[in-house]
């Protein structure tokens, strides 16, 4: 479970996040919505440890991780992907995922036995590729995948870290419209199997309403609205902020 308690983030005199509080329980998928400049990416960076809050606390499974480094947070169970895909492009698709699996098993610092010789890690990586329908690309370099498959691989890599809390920044951006729901089905299915608490930044309201239990609307650094997708869509302030219209 992730808890964000009264978090404030200021850059010089500019207040980007102003007293935000929310929590995400195990097996819960929450969407973070908001217009450009609302502070979504700052919020994600605060949770992943790339930024330190000016005040407030962040707790993971009850443990205060506010001052933990990004590395410590990863080891405690936080994983994230990025809006723009970040792969190890010259490594094979299998090695992209296996590197994450080996990292999760604290086996990356080993020097002499070839990575392929770590049978359990390799099998686990292949199983993850199977879940994300990427098995057939195992031996191809990451750079040779289509944009949509790169995005899926990006998400598969975060899954390989077996996180307790997952931050997904637009997991379907770049994916062909016809494949978006298939990709989300795969992600949600995998989340469900591990019971991972998940925060998704997503602009596609169809995806939000189909896959997220709760929605947080961030505007000018504060939570403007929160509730189920339907409740938020019925909220005139959220409508105006997100779509520029109100009934």
């Amino acid at each position: 479970m992730l808890e964000v308690k009264d978090v404030v983030k200021a850059f010089d005199k500019s207040l980007v996040i102003n007293g935000v509080s929310f929590s995400i329980a195990e097996n819960e998928v929450v969407a973070l919505l908001g217009p450009n400049g609302a502070g979504k990416t700052t919020m994600v960076n605060l949770i992943s440890g790339h930024l330190q809050p000016t005040s407030g606390k962040i707790l993971l499974n009850g443990e205060d991780i506010t001052n933990a480094s990004p590395y410590q947070r990863i080891k405690k169970g936080i994983a994230r992907n990025f809006q723009i895909t970040h792969l190890f492009e010259d490594l094979s698709v299998l090695d992209n995922v296996r590197t994450c699996v080996l990292s999760n098993r604290n086996q990356l610092g080993r020097f002499f036995k070839p990575a392929s010789g770590y049978k359990e890690a390799t099998e686990e990586a292949r199983a993850i590729l199977g879940i994300f329908n990427l098995e057939q690309f195992s031996d191809q370099p990451g750079s040779e995948l289509s944009e949509g498959d790169k995005k899926v691989l990006d998400t598969a890599m975060t899954f390989a870290l077996k996180p307790d809390f997952l931050l997904l920044d637009e997991p379907t951006s770049g994916v062909a419209t016809a494949d978006k729901f298939k990709v989300m089905d795969t992600i949600i299915d995998a989340i469900g199997k591990r019971g991972t608490a998940t925060l998704i930044i997503e602009h596609d309201m169809d995806i939000v309403s189909d896959y997220c239990q709760r929605v947080l609307v961030l505007a000018e650094g504060t939570i403007l609205a929160r509730g189920t997708p339907q409740e938020v869509m019925d909220d005139p302030r959220a409508q105006e902020t997100l779509f520029g219209v109100s009934e």
Partner: peptide, 9 residues
């Protein structure tokens, strides 16, 4: 070819 080598890459 080791895990270290892959991590380095």
């Amino acid at each position: 070819n080791s895990p270290f080598g892959k991590a380095l890459q």
